[in-house]
């Protein structure tokens, strides 16, 4: 008799609760949600010079204007660097949400460059458990300077086409730790087909750290530092350090920053940075990103 009474009581209680409880959806129980990936760890696809773990969206064309003024320590004569400027113009395109490609042309050493970036892993907020985003960037650049102006020029050296090419491979491991703070570590190697002297390594191994701190919804503070392992470059080359702000206004992102690097492609800012922060060899510069949706991917209908 006892179990029967218990059942009867439980049954009555259930009917009661079914009517009284106003949380109908709660009674359905939690459904396992589809994977929700973390987004917007950085405002744009570059931290400052280096790549961030973000990609341009599928079908999105990103026109980028990168601009570096001269060194601030040029003084009033040089209007604190604002008289001089070097520019990189580039187009990036999101082939899929994971794959983006881009091309660019820099005034620095008259260089053209291209890259592909693929996100293998994406940090997950719900429905899966991946804690980090992992991306790989493969880039290549080529100077179009006249033969007697390339940095490695010497009279008896043949100007082979391949001499002008360099490659850069970077792995990006990053995480959006909170709404405000994101950080990424990027080990990589820059391969230069030809270098100026035997003191330069052809393969330059480096690791960089980059972070962003959101100050308001539309303003973020970014910083990145490239550490080149010792003994690979002559002493007068410095590690690249950049600090700046991202300002977002609708379809544009403005990045305003200070950096000791002049060039805006991997070989230049990783292996050819001559500016020394302690000397005031600092460029003021900006990147402008303007996105255009050129293709709208079809969404799977459920």
């Amino acid at each position: 008799m006892r179990p029967f009474l218990l059942f009867a009581l439980a049954s009555v209680a259930m009917i009661h609760s079914a009517h009284a409880q106003d949380d109908l959806i709660g009674q359905l129980g939690e459904e396992k949600s589809a994977p929700v990936y973390s987004t917007a760890a950085f405002k744009t696809t570059r931290v400052i010079n280096g790549h961030s773990l973000e990609n341009t969206g599928h079908g999105v064309l990103d026109f980028r204007i990168n601009h570096r003024f001269g060194f601030i320590n040029g003084g009033a004569q040089e209007f604190f660097g604002l008289d001089g400027a070097t520019v990189r113009l580039g187009f990036d395109y999101g082939v899929t949400d994971r794959l983006m490609v881009g091309i660019g042309r820099s005034g620095f050493q008259k260089t053209v460059d291209g890259f592909a970036k693929y996100r293998f892993l994406q940090q997950c907020d719900a429905g899966c458990s991946m804690p980090v985003t992992l991306a790989v960037v493969a880039a290549s650049s080529m100077t179009t300077l006249p033969a007697n102006q390339v940095p490695w020029y010497s009279e008896d050296r043949m100007d082979y086409f391949t001499n002008r090419i360099s490659y850069a491979f970077t792995v990006i491991v990053g995480r959006k730790f909170s709404d405000k703070f994101s950080f990424q570590l990027n080990p990589g190697v820059v391969h230069r087909n030809l270098v100026a002297s035997s003191a330069d390594a052809n393969d330059v191994i480096h690791i960089s750290g980059a972070g962003r701190m959101k100050l308001t919804k539309r303003i973020a503070l970014n910083a990145e530092y490239f550490y080149v392992l010792r003994g690979q470059l002559p002493e007068h080359y410095k590690n690249s350090l950049s600090v700046g702000f991202d300002l977002e206004t609708g379809g544009h992102v403005f990045q305003l920053h200070f950096t000791n690097s002049t060039g805006m492609f991997e070989r230049a800012y990783i292996t050819e940075t001559v500016g020394d922060w302690s000397n005031g060899d600092i460029h003021f510069g900006f990147n402008i990103s303007r996105v255009f949706t050129v293709h709208t991917p079809k969404r799977p209908k459920s």
Partner: peptide, 21 residues
Amino acid sequence: SMLIKAFAFEKALMQEHFNED
């Protein structure tokens, strides 16, 4: 009940601003 992140936009940037800002 619905997840805000499940709203899909035509423009990826709009979706990001919708969620972030």
